[in-house]
Design a protein around this nucleic acid. Sequence first.
DNA 1: CCGTAAATGAGGTACGTGCCTCATGACCTA
DNA 2: TAGGTCATGAGGCACGTACCTCATTTACGG
Lengths: 347, 347
Amino acid sequence: MNEIGLRRRATVHDVARAAGVSLATVDRVLNGRPGVRAATVEKVEAAIAEIGFQRDLSASLLARARDLRVVFIIPDSSNEFMASLADAVTRRAGQALTDRIYIETQRLRALDAGALAKALDGLDARTTDCAVIVGGEEPSVLTAVDSATKRGIVVMTLVSDLPATQRHHFIGVDNVAAGRTAASLLGRFLPQGGKVAVIAGSLHLRDHSERLSGFRATMAAEFPALELIGPSEGHDERSETEAIVADVLARHPDLAGLYNLGAGNAGLVAALDAAPSASALRVIAHELTEPTRRGLRSGVIDVVLDQNPDGEIREAIAAARTLALGGHGALVSDPIEIGIFLRDNLR
Amino acid sequence: MNEIGLRRRATVHDVARAAGVSLATVDRVLNGRPGVRAATVEKVEAAIAEIGFQRDLSASLLARARDLRVVFIIPDSSNEFMASLADAVTRRAGQALTDRIYIETQRLRALDAGALAKALDGLDARTTDCAVIVGGEEPSVLTAVDSATKRGIVVMTLVSDLPATQRHHFIGVDNVAAGRTAASLLGRFLPQGGKVAVIAGSLHLRDHSERLSGFRATMAAEFPALELIGPSEGHDERSETEAIVADVLARHPDLAGLYNLGAGNAGLVAALDAAPSASALRVIAHELTEPTRRGLRSGVIDVVLDQNPDGEIREAIAAARTLALGGHGALVSDPIEIGIFLRDNLR
DNA sequence: CCGTAAATGAGGTACGTGCCTCATGACCTA
DNA sequence: TAGGTCATGAGGCACGTACCTCATTTACGG
């Protein structure tokens, strides 16, 4: 039972020795404090790389006697998906506290770019290590993200990316793949061909347009026998979506498939429930929420594609932990997978 | 920016004060050391519960100057799934080290219950905190699990549960739900009815028989137009599975669907590749491995149901962390979800 | 060559917990 | 009541890092 081969982890002391400097200097380099010549910084960094030093995150948080502070800024709309995201944050917040990670949630009016920008501008780098945001590509938001990053806050985008900014990381699913998957399933569900209606929330939303493009591409390439109807835009609203679905059903009594790539699923389910002969209709929707679960259970929805909000929040927290203190370099994180739910594998 | 409402986390000092005892006594209780009257133990435990004290795992590991040691014992067979499990362990091991979790992997001859029992018996509770095993329900294994648990090692089962033992936790998917899902998809893929062949590895394996029962139940309840053929047993072997598939295809030229709920997918893909008219055949298999990915890409496999080995390992490590020091009480952990993969959402 | 500022070293305390030693007090038994 | 055992308290050192103060060295301009 000897310990040969189990080399002790390198510590700051080892770095100091290897670099031929004092502990204080290593500390200054590690924590980006001033008063070190560029040449010395390089010496220390070389030593760190050479002996493979990795700062002990727990000891670090312990020593500063303060938690890592992560702020989630999430739209506060009637959108059930955003609510489930916020729920997931709340659930994780307790466990995260055990790891000295303090999580705060801010709900903001949906689609209010100004409010999001203002919230970002209000973050103090001394009390906030990381901000995780869900936002659209508005100029004011982009500016605020870059400004927060410059102030030293790690900004991560969730669900919908802002690739034009300096955000450190994006966490979300591949929506083009989600659209392809919906097409692939519907195509297999309808081997005899037929009409398929598509409903979106708003094609100005990046995720919706990505889903649509994936859906269309696969439909065109693999299932030419299916005829696409739409897309119509329901603006993620319950009543609007309900009206659209009812209209489509009335207009096309022979409709074979339906893909709702946006929200407003309560309306979708209501319209399907009211339809007389919807049982032969194959329906795919997005996000596992209360209305879609109900639809799956009752059979009016066949498949729900889900973003897995719990997994997204878990990864966001893990990434925050790594980024905020660990290395400012590459980040390995699990990709978020598209959850596919039928009535039979509902949790 | 004040800190009102952000109460400091409770520490051992708080527990001592609340219980009216000294730090030393709290320490003795927390670490199960002798020399404390039962009445005092209760007092301390009451105080812990009252102020909601949670031991700081990181500080604890730091203080003992040793890592949490977790051993994964995984079958070393030609089974590609076990290989991907082991790969996932290796991938996580590096990151885990940052959190003072030292992970060791042992590969054992598959289906060798004696070897697994011996490996478990060989674990020293002083150097091993947690063992994660994949094993069948053999008497020698059951005994060894209980013995290790008694010695103070946290034992967790992975993929296949041993509910008859004292194992602390099981991590794996709901295989009955997986079987139901396969049936539900095939049923929707084949609205005109037809013959569906089922191939298993061995029905003596708990996961296989669970999948079969879920599959059968949903088929009978929802898709009476489909005729089941089999199951035949391919014993998770490449060549045997290939022969069985070729035989079934020859015997039933009009076969509409195929469900391989076991391993041996290299054989499945080979047989399908060799078949002349397999393009109309809907095929569902298990576990995302090299051969099934190939099958998805080429189109001979329609859907792969996956256990998500990475997620399983992640949860295993998280659970080990919580169980080994945290609370010996209830453990909240994310359920492992069945991954559903088509060509279109392959990562 | 001096004055000054910047760079670096030396060493301390703290974080929350584990583990050790030693002292003190309570209680039991002979 | 003496001698023993057991329960408990008091205190200190350690883990790896952060952050502080104070001294010392080095570099540079005049």
